[in-house]
């Protein structure tokens, strides 16, 4: 079916809210230098200073401005989330296409690979690898990309294989279309909806993973990351500092995940014919 995703999203209440939530995040990330009142890497004053007019959320244990840390943390979260989502989706797509076009043996190998990867507890392996690689932003992007592609690949492969059997592809090849044409003009466009959903879900999962790793302290300590903030703050959990130091990054993580989840849910329900009661077509 031809659906305009943008319209679908805007029509869907959840989708609308999710879009607004995510847009705000993106704006904050882009405008971080202008929004942040202080340089979050610079010592501002007495560590663990409670909130004041100057430091709205106080200072952390090494005297950095917590609000500015939060604002810069948005950048890390989105950068990691979006990069991993894009790269892992690309891997998934490449494998799915290879499985569909490469013949039975290639497909079997790819399916096997996906199945094995799906059995493995991804997060535990991420921790294991991360311990040795002391990850910065780039390493964590590479690592999570390599670990997170399998679920997407499974769905995309199944979909690509079923698309391949569709008659309009047979029709195209009966007009003399080659594999390249079929991939670019039919398979990939037909996969767009699924790719979009996968991308959104991947951002959500990555944010989860990144926050978890940082919470365990497995992240470059010079980076500004919400998970890392919680990691440090949790050592001071029984002082009053948790109210302005621990809660805000936690809530922001939830905010981000929920924002993307809302978009994902809206997209999925517009894709699932069972859940789509009022189909809004465009093209008139």
């Amino acid at each position: 079916m031809h659906i305009n995703y943008w319209t679908e999203l805007k029509r869907n209440k959840f989708g609308r809210i999710g879009l607004i939530m995510v847009s705000i995040l993106v704006l904050v990330a882009l405008a971080a230098p202008f929004l942040a009142p202080h340089n979050p890497w610079v010592y501002q004053g007495q560590p663990l200073t409670p909130p004041s007019e100057e430091y709205i959320l106080g200072l952390n244990d090494i005297g950095q401005d917590i609000l500015s840390e939060l604002i810069y943390g948005t950048r890390t979260t989105l950068l990691v989330g979006v990069s991993v989502a894009v790269f892992s989706t690309l891997i998934s797509l490449a494998l799915a296409l290879a499985a569909a076009l490469g013949g039975r043996i290639v497909d079997r190998i790819i399916l096997r690979l996906i199945d094995i990867m799906l059995i493995l507890p991804v997060f535990l392996i991420a921790i294991l690898v991360a311990i040795y690689f002391k990850p910065g932003v780039v390493t964590i992007i590479i690592m999570l990309t390599l670990l997170l592609w399998p679920p997407g690949a499974r769905i995309l492969r199944a979909q690509t294989l079923s698309l391949k059997e569709r008659q309009h592809l047979t029709a195209a090849s009966s007009f003399g279309a080659g594999k390249g044409y079929i991939v670019y003009r039919h398979l990939i466009p037909d996969l767009y909806p699924l790719l979009t959903v996968n991308l959104i879900q991947m951002v959500r999962r990555t944010v989860f993973m990144e926050a978890g790793l940082a919470f365990l302290g497995i992240f470059d300590p010079t980076q500004k990351s919400w998970g890392l903030m919680i990691h440090y703050a949790s050592e001071f959990i029984f002082t009053g500092a948790w109210k302005w130091w621990l809660l805000p990054p936690g809530l922001l993580i939830s905010y981000t995940i929920i924002g993307f989840a809302l978009i994902g849910y809206a997209l999925e329900s517009s894709l699932d014919p069972r859940l789509r009661r009022n189909i809004h077509y465009v093209g008139h």
Binding site: A211, G212, F215, I230, I237, G250, S254, Y255
Partner: peptide, 9 residues
């Protein structure tokens, strides 16, 4: 939307 560690905290 709440990661497990944050839920615990």
């Amino acid at each position: 939307g709440i990661p497990s560690f944050f839920m615990g905290i």
